[in-house]
Write a protein that binds this DNA or RNA. Structure first.
Lengths: 345, 345
DNA sequence: CTGTTAGCGCCTTCAT
DNA sequence: ATGAAGGCGCTAACAG
């Protein structure tokens, strides 16, 4: 392996100058810098990143810490992988390094996130799928290393904690309006986990839309299905069996839950969208393959990941930036929603 | 951050002993070893991996190099991510480190795989989606660092190159037999890219099954759809329009292609499986959501990834092991295949 | 501008 | 069985 020493020798200078020339220090004569660069290039030299990390004070590696996807069943994998690719791309754009840590609440061998970062000279972390009550999470925050949270927003006194997400309020407002515009009035909301941040945000959006149409989100209209297909299936099935009046639409806070509802609805003998309309949230690839295809609020996971990495880098460099970043979503119209004829009162 | 020096000081010994005690060197008195371990534990010490990598001669980090998934459209993501999780798990099991490198033929900023590894003190690499004619690939092989290839098998003179995959011959043999057992005789094979290794393997399996039923795989029965949905759609559509006799089944070398065929078949007004049966290959999550659900040869991508990492570690440790490893697949029966009544001749 | 000198945190001979 | 010293490849003061 060709090292900085080799380059220095060949150029007839000290390794210090080589280091400076390569790292664009201002106090190097243009001539020698030029020469060093040429020689380094000619020798096909590239610095050893491990050594660089160890000696350098400026941390150039980013940790991506995710929880809950290691044992996931693969259905929502495409999201996570897109997000991952986004993070990877954002990290690479600026020549940072990426270290990955996947965990799961079930996993025995739980390591502290803080330790993970310390042991690898990690200067900042992107966190996905982390719960705010995760003790390792708060420990990490206390180390004061910059973090960017995906889909979480904590009221923090930390100024180097950023967050990136879809505008959940807006997106759910739009998807609700989409249904309301098509004259749906008896809408059941299949919400997610009550405690989840995104869930409350999406509820706010729905309520806002309802209000504009003189409707209210009463408790009977909301089911809490913890974002999973199975739970949504069970809840919607039960709902449909007990309901005196069949709703005209289910508004789901995740595509997976929409699939669960679809299954329940079909089993009840009702047709989608003729008898019941359904909307999702996320934008999974599967949406294009279900029957009918699913209308949804599609999140741009790749860009969410990329922006997370970019924002984190700015925080790591001490730049004063808006710590909250929003990524555009998109309402994707497909077949699962029916336009109702307006009822005359 | 607590370093080895801190532990040494507190234990009243030199850092050399601490290092040895922590790394299970034989020449440390049980007593001091015991004491050091206790103190290290009590101080919550964990070694800095960057420093370890730099100083240690034994390479403990594995590179995962993948090509072609960075800009993929996201449909086959679940595979890759499952594979990735498998690699991650396998790497973590043995306390190795993982460095990831995603690339794409389209990508401008192409770096050499060998350099990627050298710069990070990477001692072995898992390669996925790499083409054998990739110049960076051969360059990497020449560096003589152990590699494990997923889904590729090169005739190599290298003894430290392993490979892990599904038994493609067996799997395709079984899926073909599955159709033949159900009395399908007019089967069209929607194959993948002609040059691909897995493609030729799967063809062998199909031919073997056909032969046992006195059939032959003539050219007219095989379409080459480069594994993509779009291509398969176009080819099958064209085939169906021109065909004098409608085949009873399409045997596809990927689930994605099966979706393409499904689309074409439906557009032709034929029903699945009543008029035409279809089988896939891979085991994507989407299979459960298509209408009808898809019968397929499901690969265990997670385990393929995990075994790759495990095999690689053995190669890195210089162990003499079988460099070729097979991971069990599974024929998953769903709705897309019809059992035909046997024709009397 | 350039070179010298210390490290970064750890592993690893080689004496003791 | 233990410790001293050198080094991994690089960056970062500090002199000159």
């Amino acid at each position: 392996m060709v090292t900085i020493k080799d380059v220095a020798k060949k150029a007839g200078v000290s390794i210090a100058i080589v280091s400076k020339a390569l790292n664009n220090y201002p106090d190097v004569s243009p001539k020698t810098k030029q020469r060093i660069l040429e020689i380094a290039n000619e020798m096909n030299y590239t610095p050893n990143i491990v050594a660089k990390n160890l000696s350098s004070k400026t941390q150039k590696t980013i940790g991506m810490i995710t929880s809950g996807f290691l044992n996931s069943e693969g259905k929502d994998n495409s999201n996570i992988f897109d997000m991952f690719k986004g993070v990877y791309t954002g990290v690479e754009e600026k020549q940072y390094e990426l270290a990955i840590y996947l965990t799961d609440t079930l996993k025995q061998q739980q390591r502290s996130y803080a330790k993970f970062c310390q042991n690898r000279n990690i200067g900042g972390a992107v966190l996905m799928g982390i719960r705010v009550d995760d003790p390792y999470f708060t420990e990490l925050l206390d180390t004061n290393i910059p973090c960017v949270l995906v889909d979480i927003n904590i009221e923090s006194h930390y100024e180097n904690i950023g967050s990136v997400s879809t505008d959940n309020i807006k997106a759910s407002y739009e998807i609700a309006s989409y249904l309301l515009d098509r004259n749906h009035t008896h809408i059941v909301v299949m919400a997610g986990t009550k405690a989840a941040y995104v869930n409350s945000q999406r509820l706010i959006g729905v309520e806002k839309a309802f209000k504009e149409y003189g409707l209210e989100v009463s408790d009977t209209n909301v089911l809490y299905g913890n974002f999973s297909e199975e739970e949504a299936y069970v809840l919607s099935k039960e709902y449909l069996e007990k309901a005196k009046v069949v709703p005209t639409a289910f508004l789901c806070f995740s595509d997976l839950m929409a699939y669960g509802v679809m299954k329940a609805v079909k089993e009840t003998g009702l047709k989608i969208p003729e008898d019941i309309s359904i909307t999702g949230f996320d934008g999974l690839v599967i949406n294009e393959y279900t029957q009918p295809t699913l209308t949804t609020a599609k999140q741009d996971f790749y860009e969410i990941g990329r922006q997370s990495a970019l924002l984190l880098q700015q925080l790591m460099e001490g730049k004063k930036v808006d710590t909250k970043r929003i990524v555009e979503h998109q309402i994707v119209e497909r077949e699962s929603v029916q336009t109702l004829t307006k009822e005359l009162k």
